[in-house]
Design a protein around this nucleic acid. Structure first.
Length: 713
RNA sequence: GGGAGAUUAGCUCAGUUGGUAGAGCAAUUCGUUUACACCGAAAAGGUCAGAGGUUCAAGUCCUCUAUCUCCCACCA
């Protein structure tokens, strides 16, 4: 009856079993909900946040995969029609940056390459990297349905994303605006607000004598683009000047500037008088709209001063600033210079200071869409775990600005639009033909810009389920969106908005946000610090099971986790404990199988079963309420400290004794507890539990992955 | 300038609805008991940041303070 002992070699070696078990699952087809037994009716759906296809998985992905697989496996065993859709993200700007670095190393530059050539090269690179990423996901034991895998550049996805743009355009929710955008002078593209990072900088605040005023500025080099001086309308010092035109001097000549009164000017700051440069400052730009001011561009796309600046033309901003200040000092126009600490937006990828530029770009009108999302959340249609993220979400939705969705890079989904070469107006590609004439007399040409990555990934829950036609939309709205807490702004709001806008339903009912996975001292992992721990190294060393349970236990939602290798090692010991306890039970209960009816039990046996029931109820409740760290901990302690240390030890004399009745009862109790534990541990440590399940004595046994969840006895 | 989180054993962290503190790792002592030394047994270790308050009862709820971390922010 027992074919197992040879297999139960000691100690447990994950490397020998994981690949084999994963293959077994894949071949069973049970990752695909369509193949599950008929009793699995009610859907449970998670759409995987698509990892970037440009590299391998990092530790944060490990936690994502672990948590989502725990949820999926649990719900599958609970009899749900469980679907977990995997994916891969082309990650537009991110990938382009990765590839540019590669080109730089090889002495190339994307700016010297043909569009198509560059796109094809990045595509080849991405598709190759994608394979490694997928292998990492599989190595972690992810029970996702690979037959439904989507890539954000699949043709069907691309056309649907473009269709969404057309719909927004027709609904007057997307427009081509001529506004200041966040321009990265290194990467030569605009960036959305969430793609910039503000860093504290110590600069100087220059007080410049400016006609009858003294103005305070950190950017004297933009003086050539000044069109006005702004003061607060209630400021008694300057009131009389409002509406007048004053003459001011700068190193290259004189300017006539109108004095405007604007409530936004803080009389307390600096001198209370402010120079207005609409082409190079977000705030000044807005005032220029209110007061109908002209805009004079003096800095070009490379961050150099242009020919409107006389002798400064061609200088970079930093250099020009020094020169202009020197020359102003010579002219005795600098009143004083103060040290000034302030926050400056930079490109989140290269730290280059963002140069605000006025450019024609596509924008999504956020206010009406954000309202859809915040209303849905206020109505309780989406639950946040932990719940304080609801407040953060709502604050952001109530204070949103229009979203710049056009990027001047080739790697991404092209915007289906035509723009006029002379007046820069934009129209839909399908409505107007390339080369036709604009009302202004100019010619329409294809817009070469691509979408912000978050424009496509924002539609991910729908796209992953084959929107708009697929039958898989019966899985929408999905149950859980599990992702890193850093995506609360970048990604979550866009998905809620697009879900509601396109389908009229929220994309998910629960948002579960995990914290960042840091190094063992709680410090952020980074390549430069050399403290990066990759999941594939840890799975190789300790096994995927140990990594999974080690990542989840002791980690509460929303809070960061310190990933100590010793901890993972500790859980490898736990796996070994399970292995050995199972070995003992299996070799000492050969007279009993899982099909043996419940024998007469001793009072102590009944007590043990009552205790087991309590554990089942408690652990199941933890699973149901997303308290996976508690489920894991309780399983750990029940198995080790109660089952192995007490119950098994207590049973030894009975198993070795002559009382056959007592022996049979003991065998039955041990096997029963073992099976319940193997099942309840399965979502955390799927490989070792499936391997052990395979060795359990039972008639007509199927895979553990579809075994029903244990119920109290 | 706003907001969130954290402050519990040497280290990293749990502690779900309030009921006299827990885990992993580390450290101590003992034990080669035929599942497991990737083990077992035993012991040690914390005025739960501080101060008030509510309560029969507070690590857990309320207020304030201190320190740290992170996020958001177009006062030049």
């Amino acid at each position: 009856m027992t074919a197992f002992p040879e297999k139960l070699n000691k100690p447990y070696e994950p490397a020998n079993t994981e690949a084999r078990i994963y293959k077994l699952w894949e071949e069973s087809g049970f990752f695909n909900p369509d193949n599950l037994p008929a009793r699995h009716q009610e859907p449970f759906t998670i759409v995987m946040p698509p990892p970037n296809a440009n590299g391998r998985l990092h530790a944060g992905h490990g936690l994502t995969i672990a948590l989502e697989d725990i949820m999926t496996r649990y719900q599958r065993m609970q009899g749900k029609k469980a679907l977990w859709v995997p994916g891969a993200d082309h990650a537009g700007f991110e990938t382009q940056v990765v590839y540019e670095k590669k080109l730089e190393k090889e002495g190339h530059s994307r700016f010297k390459m043909d569009r198509k050539e560059l796109y094809d090269e990045i595509m080849a690179f991405t598709l190759e990297s994608k394979k490694h990423m997928e292998a990492d996901v599989k190595a972690l034991g992810a029970s996702c349905d690979w037959s439904r895998e989507k890539f954000t550049l699949d043709p069907s996805v691309v056309s649907e994303v473009q269709e969404t743009f057309r719909k927004l355009y027709r609904d007057n929710l997307v427009y081509r605006g001529y506004r200041t955008v966040n321009w990265c002078t290194k990467h030569q593209t605009s960036l959305s607000d969430v793609e910039t990072e503000t860093v504290e900088k110590n600069d100087k605040l220059y007080y410049i004598k400016y006609g009858p005023f003294t103005v305070a500025t950190v950017r004297p080099e933009t003086i050539f683009g000044d069109v006005a001086i702004a003061v607060n309308p209630n400021d008694a010092r300057y009131k009389e000047f409002i509406g007048q035109t004053v003459e001011v001097q700068h190193p290259e000549g004189k300017l006539s500037l109108v004095v405007i009164g604007d409530e936004e000017v803080d009389p307390e700051f600096g001198t209370g008088a402010l120079k207005i440069t609409p082409a190079h400052d977000h705030n000044d730009f807005r005032m220029s709209e209110t007061h109908k001011l002209s805009r004079v561009e003096v800095i070009d796309q490379f961050g150099k001063l242009n020919d409107k600046t006389g002798k400064y033309a061609g200088m970079k901003v930093a250099e020009a600033r020094i020169k202009v200040v020197e020359d102003l000092q010579t002219l005795e126009l600098i009143e004083k210079i103060e040290d000034y600490a302030h926050a400056v937006p930079t490109c989140y990828k290269c730290d280059t200071t963002i140069e605000p530029r006025v450019m024609p770009q596509w924008f999504v009108k956020m206010a009406p869409l954000a309202k859809l999302a915040s209303d849905a959340v206020r109505d309780g249609k989406i639950k946040f775990i932990p719940d304080n993220f609801e407040k953060i979400f709502l604050y952001w939705m109530d204070n949103t600005m229009d979203w710049n969705i056009s990027r001047q890079i080739v790697w991404g989904i092209q915007i289906p639009a035509l723009v006029c070469r002379s007046c820069n107006v934009g129209v839909l590609y399908e409505e107007t033909i390339e080369g036709s004439e604009c009302n202004c007399g100019g010619t329409f040409v294809c817009d070469t810009d691509t979408f912000d990555t978050w424009f496509s990934s924002g539609q991910w829950p729908l796209l992953a389920l084959g929107y708009p036609k697929s039958q898989d939309l019966s899985f929408y709205p999905t149950d859980v969106m599990e992702t890193g807490r850093d995506l609360i702004f970048k990604w979550i709001p866009r998905m809620v908005i697009f879900g509601l806008y396109l389908k009229g339903e929220v994309p998910f009912r629960t948002v579960y946000l995990h914290g960042m996975v840091n190094d063992k001292h709680g410090k952020k992992m980074s390549k430069s610090k050399g403290n990066v721990v990759a999941p594939n190294e840890l799975t190789g060393k300790y096994g995927a099971d140990a990594l999974r349970i080690g990542l989840v236990i002791g980690n509460t939602p929303g809070n960061d986790i310190a990933l100590a290798e010793d901890k993972i090692k500790g859980y490898k010991h736990f796996c070994n404990k399970i292995w050995n306890a199972s070995r003992f039970v299996l070799t000492n209960t050969t007279g009993t199988t899982l099909d043996t009816p419940r024998p007469a039990l001793t009072p102590r046996d009944e007590e043990i079963l009552t205790e087991l029931n309590t554990a089942i109820i408690s652990i199941t409740a933890h699973y149901e309420n997303f308290r996976f760290h508690l489920a894991g901990e309780e399983l750990y302690h029940y198995f080790w400290n109660t089952f192995a240390d007490i119950i098994i030890e207590e049973m030894k004399p009975r198993l070795l004794g002559d009382d056959e009745v007592s022996k049979k009862a003991g065998e039955w109790v041990l096997l029963t507890i073992l099976v319940v534990n193997i099942k309840m541990l399965h979502p955390f440590i799927p490989f070792i539990t499936e391997e052990l399940w395979e060795m359990l004595p039972k008639e007509n046994k199927q895979l553990l992955i579809i075994e029903p969840w244990p119920k109290p006895f």
